[in-house]
Simulated assay, not measured.
Amino acid sequence: MRDITELIRIIVAEDMDVLRDHFCKLISQEKDMSIIGRAASGKEVLALVAELGAPDIILMDIEMDVKHDGIMTAQKVLEKHPDTRIVFLTVHEDEETIFSAFDTGAVDYVLKTSSSEAIVQSIRSAHSGVVSVRPEVAYKIKNEFSRIRRNQEALMAATLLLSQMTPSELAILNLLLKDMKIPQIAKERQVELSTIKTQINMILKKFDKKRTKEVTALLRELNVTSFIQNRLGGGS
């Protein structure tokens, strides 16, 4: 008879009965693991944790009752029980889901189509604290860091450029960000249309863009509209 105090205590959370039974059967065959609870929703997970205490591992589907139910549940569990290890089960491989999962403090992310060996090994690795990120996940994380770095570089360049612009150019940018057309801007600024066109051409040249839509899209993406307004003294 196995000594339960030495086993990896696991809660399996999966809303599909067939899959939940499959994962439980798989885990029950392992001599070093014990299932202490089964759940079909995030609410049931929280109820089990409150009743039985924090498990060593929660093998949890990301989407159960609602979208990202598992992610929200993981956040609540880890707030009170930071030593519990979360291993997510999902059919999704998109970057947003992966980053949302790891952002909770989860230690692994396993596709439901993974082999039995891979799922069991993920549980053991999570319990031992030795978690290796699989190549496909590492690739997506690397791409995300590259994207963040590119955005940071673009933000620094745009901020420097904006800090060197004249008040008139900043005012025009601010109006362009409000989707105003050139004639409207000329009327608002009470200047000749040709003057606004000349100033816009200068702005385009500084940003190395051909269209004002490209400039405004960049500024919105980098979220620097408040920086422009602050430089204008909070004006519109």
Rank of each mutant, 00 (worst) to 15 (best):
M1E: 04
I4N: 06
E6H: 04
E6L: 07
L7T: 14
D15T: 09
D15R: 09
M16Y: 12
M16I: 12
D17W: 03
V18G: 00
V18R: 01
L19I: 06
R20S: 00
F23M: 09
K25A: 13
E30L: 00
G37F: 04
G37A: 07
R38T: 13
A39T: 05
A39V: 02
E44N: 01
E44P: 00
E44T: 02
L48T: 06
E51T: 07
G53C: 12
A54L: 02
D56N: 14
I62P: 14
E63V: 06
H68Y: 14
Q75S: 06
V77M: 14
V77L: 13
E79K: 15
K80C: 00
T84L: 13
T84R: 04
V87L: 11
F88E: 10
T90M: 11
T97C: 08
A101F: 12
A101N: 13
A101H: 10
D103L: 05
T104M: 12
G105D: 14
A106P: 06
V107S: 08
Y109D: 05
E117N: 07
A118L: 08
I119S: 02
I123N: 04
R124E: 01
R124P: 02
A126C: 00
H127G: 00
S128L: 10
S132P: 00
R134T: 02
E136V: 06
Y139R: 15
Y139S: 07
K142N: 11
K142W: 03
N143H: 07
R147F: 12
R147A: 10
R149A: 12
Q152S: 02
A154C: 00
L160M: 05
L162D: 02
S163W: 02
Q164A: 12
T166Q: 10
K178C: 09
K178T: 07
M180V: 04
M180Q: 11
K181P: 09
K181T: 13
I182C: 10
I185A: 09
K187Q: 13
E188G: 01
Q190C: 08
E192W: 04
L193Q: 13
L193P: 12
L193Y: 15
T195H: 14
K197Q: 15
T198E: 13
Q199C: 07
N201D: 14
K205P: 01
T212C: 09
E214V: 03
E214L: 01
A217P: 11
L218K: 11
E221M: 03
N223A: 14
V224R: 09
N230E: 14
R231M: 15
L232S: 11
G233R: 08
G234I: 04
S236M: 00
S236K: 01
